[in-house]
Amino acid sequence: MGAVAELGELTILVGRMIRTLPKLHKTLRLTLVQMNEMGVGSLPLVVVTSFFTGGVAAVQAAYQFQGWIPDKFVGSVVGRSVLIELGPVLTGLVVGGRVGASIAAELGTMKVTEQIDALEALAIDSIRYLVLPRFIAGAVMIPVVTIFANALAIFGGLLAAVGSIGMSTGTYIEGLRFFFEMSDVWSGMIKSLVFGAIIALMGCYYGLQTSGGAEGVGRSATRAVVSSCLLILISDYILAEFLFSWLFAE
């Protein structure tokens, strides 16, 4: 299918989903199930990823500062780069892989086994029943997971700074606070909200487009992951422009 046609189909899906929003209360329980799956289920993966990301950021910063910039700025660099960039983007990519593939595979299997038709035949709107809960859960839980990821990455940076660079905890925290801006936290949250929406939407879109049995399900899962990763990186650039030269411009 051509890119234009795909964009059209995606727009129709989003349009149909928005029209089901007034019936969100009917899908609340399903949404909570999805939130648990996406949020709590993703934590172990995010803990490991962000902890080491923070550590690496600290070690790299210290290496590049050698003899030129005081150690206390290690904390500043780790803090800001994690809050603005590393936390949201890495969480988006890692959770996007996990959640996007699982949504696409689940909906894809439902599609090829006629379960989605069965829902429709029972007069249940498959978009409200399946897509809306996943979309809401993604847009809410990816930012929540990102908050955990940020905290853990900064903590990982602290451990690396103290353990392998030989800084004191006080110096690291002083640097962290020195350049801290609340707008960094907000911009990271806005980004992760967009990433969460992208991940859920790509999973649902490719899941519902599935045809051709087990092979088709595998193809949909791959497409969901690849497209959400690409869209996260592309939208990250667009958001950076929007957030820092417009919304939080000084």
């Binding site: 009917k26 439902m110 086994t113 006629e114 379960q115 038709d117 069965a118 829902l119 429709e120 035949a121 029972l122 007069a123 249940i124 029943y129």
Partner: peptide, 29 residues
């Protein structure tokens, strides 16, 4: 569609639900 019932070729039961939940889903919704 509420006036219709449809039996699908491969049954198309929802495998995330129990048998009872499958039967009652229309009424529940």
């Amino acid at each position: 569609r509420k006036k219709f019932g449809m039996l699908f070729q491969n049954s198309a039961l929802f495998d995330s639900m129990t048998v009872g939940e499958n039967v009652a889903i229309g009424l529940k919704e």
